[in-house]
Write a protein that binds this DNA or RNA. Structure first.
Lengths: 200, 200
DNA sequence: GTCTATATGGCGATAGAC
DNA sequence: GTCTATCGCCATATAGAC
């Protein structure tokens, strides 16, 4: 790297078009990989299965991601969508978390992936453990900030932990038994919290 | 070791002692397998790892359990300990569920195994899915019966679901982050439920 | 201890875009 | 012609089963 860095313009080797196509197919691969990991877990996922889903051979896939682990990391890196902030405050903001329970079928794959990853984390998958720990901190911070804008309870740590764990538990329950009344259960929790926070 | 085989008189069927020893080692194997499955999940668990833990070779292990799956099923079949019934009623009985949160280090392996199995179930492991579904029914029934002996709320399905999901979520949270205030969170839930059930 | 199945990962070759 | 994307083939490793 002695030559002056990317000076003025240096297309030279790869055209803009190539770069875009490469990025596009990488995105496609990561999307497919996320689905396959969600359906089978890490260990049981084969590169062939992922490649087939995007219409590639195994080697074609390995050109973009040199190893299974690198692909896994790419999936993890992309799986961080900051939840939309509706601006609601206090308990009402918490009530909106009910939307995360999974009843929107569109969100099935990412939800499944998260819970599979949490299982992998408990089973000793280091990369999954790191991702899960980071995500847990984000979720708790989010809940805390939502709560903080409304009535501020004293035992906020317990409240945050209770909400985070309950949402997660209800999500998992729904994945295992879609007929379970998870929405009423969450509504009940919010009602209970509301009664507590407003009488304080 | 050329000595005549067991010709002289061969117990013919299998002595009582042999049967007992076989049962004992099988128990030992299942215990070891449960630990290894809990630490690594199903796919990443090797028969060698299980065999080594009980001081056997892979062949020796396969003599008692002809396949990895048969061993897995044996682990699942044994993993059903009817929780002790203390005779408490209503909310107090629920409060006792806090003991299931995992802070007793002795219960780390079974707790971890359960959550790993739930992850496997979501990831499409059929045997794990069956076990998890059955266990979920047991847990819900248990909570329902505990609650039923005390004050009987109208929305009992939601209450049962809420309790089951929260305990499970807190357990998982504790496995991922042992520093999380899971006990206070559970106490908070019980307090909230108590207030609701007593004012009804 | 051996056999077999399967999965990862690398090497070489080919087709196509600029 | 050079670089990229893809494929076919193989070498290695590892696990399950007998």
């Amino acid at each position: 790297m002695i030559e002056q860095q990317p000076p003025a313009r240096r297309p030279r080797h790869r055209s803009q078009r190539q770069v875009e196509e490469s990025a596009a197919i990488k995105t496609e691969i990561v999307t497919a990989a996320a689905a396959v990991f969600a359906e089978n877990g890490y260990a049981r996922t084969t590169l062939d299965a992922v490649a087939k889903r995007v219409g590639l051979g195994r080697t074609g896939l390995l050109h973009h991601f040199p190893s299974k682990e690198s692909l896994f990391h790419a999936v993890l890196d992309r799986e961080r969508e900051p939840a939309a902030d509706t601006g609601a405050t206090g308990v009402e903001a918490i009530r909106e978390l009910g939307a995360l329970l999974g009843h929107g079928t569109a969100s099935l794959t990412p939800l499944r992936l998260i819970h599979v990853l949490e299982g992998e984390a408990i089973a000793g998958n280091e990369a999954a453990a790191r991702y899960v720990a980071e995500r847990l901190d984000e979720v708790r911070g989010e809940i805390r900030s939502k709560l903080g804008r409304g009535a501020g309870p004293r035992d906020s740590d317990a409240v945050v932990t209770l909400i985070a764990a309950t949402v997660n538990g209800l999500q998992k329950l729904w994945l295992i038994d879609p007929d379970a009344p998870t929405a009423p259960a969450f509504d009940l929790l919010v009602d209970l919290l509301e009664a507590r926070l407003t009488t304080d």
